[in-house]
Write a protein that binds this DNA or RNA. Structure first.
Length: 572
RNA sequence: GGACCCGUAGCCUAGUGGAUAAGGCACCUGCCUUCUAAGCAGGGGAUCGAGGGUUCGAAUCCCUUCGGGUCCGCCA
């Protein structure tokens, strides 16, 4: 579609006798609201003052004067717009042949940058929860989109494995754990550790002494007390083992893991540098503050009064390490919107420290996930656990499959239900623009009907089903002159847009753009499916043309789903 | 007190300067002896939170205001 736009822009610029340059015309070109109105539209509003005529008159005159380039069949004025109709056959041939040739590569390409996407970022005191499902869905989809547009992507996870939150779980285990273990308790190891975090908060409510004890534990940890370190290693080992199971199941993958504990004391030189430059100075209580007020941001503590480190101390050192060790062009943090200010402060401090890559830091902020009862709060146990959600939706998917296919064997049932349930969860997390808050209602939010992951998966399975049943037909020497219904034209138009949609979603770091496109494409396919028989088409040429269209649609749906980290399955 | 985000039909969303505001859920009517009904076709339902401004043209940009959310020095 791109070349056609350029050809049209060239022809229009010629007719306009230099009033607008080709590049200016190209920018004005848009798509009409519905396919019956044409393929490419030129709005004439901007020309009205130049020609001192109404936009409608200009459109009419242009329709007669413009010399149509080869792929354009006709140009029709429609009020203030001039609409171009492309030759159906050449578009169909071009689009479908390209997809059948490129297959899983269709929509991908280009050359780009080296980008690190940091996402998930669990705390090692409690299991992954609903918020991580949104975070991971976005992190994976954005990574895939960036990769598809030619970037070298490094997916990173940061385990927040030190700090007071970790000491709280440790304290509860020390006091009440009686040397138990996940094996003895027959619990998934991260849930086992998390149960002590909940226990701590319950007991601390009754006995305020516990908080002091937790801070004492933190001090001992910072002094590298042998017994505390041993306990810390044991509990972190358990919880990471549990995280890895959950990540494997959900499909979250990481190329590199960072641990806060390995960076939190590496910031010494940066602290000194900041003091020298006058960016950091002590306040009257003795804490070291980054002075940011003159830049319109609140000051930020970088060292506690007792000299111990906090999270940003670690992040300063880690970010420097990221850019220098991995030679990044860009770093992206996928983190919820409650930390918007934190990242502004972090990036400003790095800029003030004089790192020229500070401008290549980007916070991909996404809205909070709320339960009907309010904000997720794991310390009160009021949280929707990630494993529990997956189990719940898995069960729903299994029962839907059983309704349709009673005799299915158990292994196959579980495999399909896994793909469908994860497709439902991920698509739900991705189809809304990231900055919007999400109000998660367990029963209503995850559905298999309407604008959902399973709807796209179902459409793909339908397409594959046709192809399976018609497998004896060769897709060589295709003729496209028979694909002339409006349903076929609409579908082909959509398929041709896929590469530019991928590029747009990647540029904007917005997977929801791709979700919306897949919904539209699936709708277009299903409409076509109901209206036009493929295998029973009136003649062999039409059948071959339609089979090619079905095959091309299947490729686009599969490629799109995979970018969203959702499995395309052959049967539902 | 300050900063940022959100507000589109009963509910969830897309559209962020251009043609009649586009879908899904829920509700109503049809369609399974024809490629999978997790589907399709059709129907009702919106003064795009409110008020002002800019523009030939505003859901979209600017100002004011209301409602919801988040954050604001030693949590992560």
């Amino acid at each position: 579609m791109l070349e056609q736009r350029e050809e049209i822009a060239k022809a229009l610029a010629l007719s306009l006798k230099g009033k607008l340059k080709q590049s200016q015309v190209l920018e004005l070109l848009e798509s009409p609201p519905s396919p019956e109105m044409g393929d490419i539209a030129f709005p004439c509003f901007k020309l009205a003052p130049l020609f001192k005529k109404s936009p409608a008159e200009i459109a009419k005159e242009l329709s007669q004067s413009v010399k149509l380039p080869a792929p354009v069949e006709k140009a029709e004025p429609a009020g203030p717009y001039l609409n171009f109709f492309l030759q159906r056959e050449s578009i169909a041939k071009q689009t479908i042949s390209l997809i059948l040739k490129e297959k899983e590569k269709y929509g991908k390409g280009g050359r780009g940058k080296k980008i690190m996407v940091e996402y998930s970022g669990p705390n090692t005191n409690k299991p992954l929860h609903l918020g991580h499902l949104r975070n991971d869905s976005i992190g994976m989809a954005v990574s895939n989109l960036l990769e598809a547009t030619g970037n070298k992507v490094i997916k990173a996870n940061i385990a927040n494995d030190r700090g007071i939150h970790v000491c709280k779980s440790m304290l509860a285990y020390k006091l009440f754990g009686k040397n138990s273990s996940p094996e003895k308790a027959k619990q998934k190891p991260d849930h086992f550790v998390g149960s002590y975090y909940v226990l701590y908060n319950k007991k601390a409510g009754e006995n305020p002494e516990l908080e002091k004890q937790a801070y004492e534990l933190l001090k001992l940890w910072e002094k590298k007390d042998r017994r505390v370190i041993a306990l810390w290693k044991k509990m972190n080992g358990w919880i990471l083992q549990g995280f890895k199971q959950t990540y494997r199941r959900f499909g979250s993958r990481f190329d590199v893991w960072f641990f806060e504990s390995k960076f939190y004391d590496k910031a010494g030189p940066l602290i000194e540098q900041g003091k020298k430059k006058g960016i950091f100075s002590k306040n009257k209580d003795g804490a070291l503050l980054a002075r940011l007020e003159k830049y319109g941001l609140p000051d930020k503590t970088v060292l506690r009064a007792d000299g111990s480190r906090i999270y940003i101390t670690n992040d300063l050192a880690l970010t420097k390490h990221k850019f220098e060790h991995f030679r990044l062009d860009q770093a992206i943090w996928v983190v919820a919107s409650e930390q918007n200010l934190y990242f502004k402060q972090l990036f400003k401090i790095l800029e003030l420290l004089g790192f020229k890559w500070a401008g290549n830091c980007r916070h991909l902020s996404y809205g909070m996930v709320f339960l009907p009862s309010g904000k997720l709060k794991s310390r009160e146990g009021r949280v929707v656990d990630a494993d529990a959600i997956m189990d719940e939706v898995q069960k729903l998917a299994e029962s839907e499959i059983r309704k349709r296919e009673g005799g299915i064997n158990k292994k196959e049932l579980q495999r399909r239900a896994s793909a469908i349930s994860l497709g439902a969860i991920k698509f739900y997390m991705l189809k809304t623009a990231a900055q919007k808050d999400l109000h998660f209602k367990p029963k209503e939010s995850i559905s298999f009907e309407g604008e959902t992951g399973p709807y796209i998966q179902y459409t793909y399975a339908r397409a594959k089903n046709i192809l399976r049943k018609a497998k004896e037909v060769s897709l060589q020497k295709l003729l496209f002159n028979q694909l002339k219904t409006s349903e076929e034209k609409r579908l082909i138009n959509l398929l041709s847009q896929f590469p530019s949609i991928v590029q747009k979603a990647s540029d904007a770091l917005s997977p929801h753009i791709l979700c919306q496109f897949l919904i539209e494409t699936a709708e277009a396919f299903n409409t076509f499916y109901h209206k036009h028989p493929v295998i029973q088409a009136e003649n062999i040429e039409l059948k071959k043309g339609r089979l090619a269209l079905v095959q091309a649609t299947a490729h686009v749906l599969k490629n799109g789903l995979q970018l969203l980290n959702i499995e395309a399955i052959e049967r539902m």
